[in-house]
């Protein structure tokens, strides 16, 4: 729908890394038996991606599939298609115990770009970002809120948090990338 807006409507800040809100991103929570064929099929249909293993996020032609817990996945898809994909996956999984819900609007997504993305994340999260490689998804805390992040390449990270704290998360990242606050541990 045309009047849909993301939490910060694409706000951005240029520091020693660039922070930008990614705008509307479709997201689906899928809970179920991750070893079932139905779930694998639902993931493939929605995103084109393979089933992610523990702590992984995979990429397909239509989106990504992230491992959130032993019985939960996060599907990252086109925002405008999320509702339809939820309906389709629900249908695919009708015969098994599963839950598929649209959480696109419950989240905010930030893209962080620059050589020091790992360092910037390390100012906020107790996770060891130095050893993170693209393809890994880490659910942890950034300052005082839960978040999940992953690298798409060595200079780009995407961070997902709840929509209600979108401004807090943006302000945190903005603070962390302030010129002059470079730690020098890239």
């Amino acid at each position: 729908m045309s009047n849909a807006v993301s939490a910060l409507q694409g706000a951005s800040f240029d520091g020693y890394c660039k922070v930008e809100e990614a705008g509307l991103v479709g997201m689906i929570t899928l809970r179920g038996d991750l070893s079932s064929e139905g779930v694998t099929k639902a993931v493939k249909t929605a995103t084109g991606a393979e089933m992610p293993g523990q702590g992984q996020i995979t990429e397909g032609a239509k989106g990504r599939a992230g491992w959130m817990s032993p019985d939960e996945l996060l599907l990252v898809v086109d925002h405008s298609k999320a509702a339809d994909l939820v309906a389709a996956a629900t249908k695919t999984l009708a015969k098994e115990h599963a839950l598929v819900v649209n959480v696109s609007d419950a989240r905010a997504v930030y893209r962080l770009t620059g050589d020091a993305v790992r360092e910037v994340l390390a100012k906020l999260s107790p996770a060891d970002t130095a050893v993170m490689v693209p393809g890994q998804l880490r659910r942890t805390r950034v300052a005082q809120i839960p978040a999940a992040f992953y690298l798409t390449d060595d200079q780009t990270a995407e961070l997902i948090c709840f929509r209600s704290v979108a401004q807090y998360a943006f302000d945190l990242l903005k603070d962390a990338v302030q010129p002059g606050s470079e730690v020098g541990i890239v």
Binding site: Y168, L172, D175
Partner: peptide, 16 residues
Amino acid sequence: AGEARHEIFQPLRRTP
């Protein structure tokens, strides 16, 4: 306190 000052002293939740 670290970064937890001023507007990011603590998370503030906002509705749409």
